[in-house]
Write a protein that binds this DNA or RNA. Structure first.
Lengths: 199, 199
DNA sequence: AATAAAACGTTACGGATCGTTTCGTAATAT
DNA sequence: ATATTACGAAACGATCCGTAACGTTTTATT
């Protein structure tokens, strides 16, 4: 989202950007996303639903994907809480359960659709990595680091690799869709955290 | 690819389907894919490059993705060989190395692009799962089953889960792109096969 | 040899959507 | 009062979709 850089409140002459229009755009996009896939969403459709001109949308967002990303991140807690005290393995196991629960349903679909669109637009994928994946998984990463400090985990553990070993199977299922993100899977994966990190 | 069902050689009257046109379409698509992403490929572009009419392409393939899939699968060995004797862990470790090597470069990009397009077209994703993923990973799955038979692996091991634990991180990196599919990663992942399967 | 049938390449079609431009109007700073 | 900017509406040229129309070519059938 490209916010106007009026730091010293509207110093420039001319009509100010309409926050109301912006809100209408976000709201219309959110509503439309409830009933159609990202691919079917169009800027023209959003403009019509929001009662707004197309140029106004383009004034705020570069592309459909950028808009969808903002809407998704606004309505989705982009950070799943993790227990910051106690055994790190238990904290991570629970985090795995919560991440899987979060990716079940429409939220997971949208994540998959954005990543899908991102295959054709690298900068979208990069932005989504930073704004979603990095943020979502940051607490888990920090917890692994903590475990290396406390001695609960091997100090030479490769954190990047460990993160991929734990969370890779989740996104594999989400994106390829060969198996469901159901509770048995979640429990099995959570139960594996210990052996994955400690051996 | 929709082949004509002329089992008893061209029994129907009328001009037969032109195998030459089909070849030209496949060849043109392959050539175009070397210099542009799947998203940028168009049926009109292929028709022009192949010296063929659009309707002829639609006679053979339902959609751009179906065509791309055929081209990709034709030029890519959709099955990475695996050693069928000896220790199963060693066989699987080597298979992991080979799969990662295969997904490095343009082939991996196309896999990611097809999966990406598949997020908006479920039937495409399903077809690609069956024709690429299932086929590529079938030998590994069979090897795990063999290990359960020989006692090298726990007999109650969940094969589906095991497959995702091993291969999930690979596709996670391929599709999200947060880390490279480089050789250190490949070696680390291969080295982890034993502990992943045996504990 | 004549006829019917089917695929061919070409061309054109209506439709959707893109991202931009133009226009007259509204809102703000100077 | 004037300059400046955003606004909504409308229209633009462009691209690509998937299909249809047309005359031509190739085959099986009669």
């Amino acid at each position: 989202m490209e916010t106007p850089e009026d730091t010293d409140r509207g110093r420039k002459p001319g009509r100010p950007r309409s926050a109301e229009s912006q809100r209408a755009i976000l709201e219309a996009t959110s509503r439309l996303l409830d009933s159609m896939p990202v691919r079917a969403l169009t800027i023209e459709g959003v403009a019509k639903a929001a009662g707004v001109g197309k140029p106004t949308i383009y004034r705020w967002w570069d592309s459909k994907c950028a808009l969808v990303m903002d809407v998704f991140l606004a309505k989705t807690a982009a950070q799943v809480p993790i227990k910051e005290t106690g055994p790190v393995v238990a904290a991570l196991s629970e985090h795995v359960l919560r991440v899987i629960a979060m990716l079940r349903g429409r939220a997971g679909q949208i994540v998959a659709e954005i990543v899908g669109e991102g295959q054709a637009e690298p900068h979208i994928l990069e932005e989504f990595r930073e704004r979603f994946f990095l943020r979502l998984l940051a607490p888990a990463r920090a917890t692994i680091e903590r475990g290396k400090q406390t001695g609960e985990l091997p100090p030479d553990l490769d954190t990047d690799l460990a993160m991929d070993l734990i969370y890779g199977p989740i996104y594999y299922r989400l994106l390829v869709g060969h198996q469901p993100l159901d509770k048995p899977f979640a429990r099995s994966l959570a139960a594996r955290v210990a052996t994955t990190l400690q051996t």
